[in-house]
Amino acid sequence: MRITIRLFGRLHDLAGATELVRELAGAATVATAWTVLAEEFPAIAPYARSVSAAVNADFAKMTTPLADGDEVAFLPPVSGG
């Protein structure tokens, strides 16, 4: 399946991109997408414990399944206000 990955805050600085399109094989979850990304950009790997995620602009968990065409966003700890 083909998914779009969106990165915010320091994550897009570390990866050097705000939006990426990647192919995932088989039954993928948000965690699959994170693993693929962290292998490609090892600098983001330390965020594994603090990152949160959204699928198609709704809050999601690492276990949320993905479908072809989904938009997955990875969010570093937030700092609004």
């Binding site: 805050g9 320091r10 990152v51 949160s52 809050f59 969010l75 570093p76 700890p77 700092s79």
Partner: peptide, 11 residues
């Protein structure tokens, strides 16, 4: 510097 606070978990 990027400021980072809470891990966003609405639930």
């Amino acid at each position: 510097v990027w400021i980072e606070g809470a891990a966003a978990d609405a639930s």
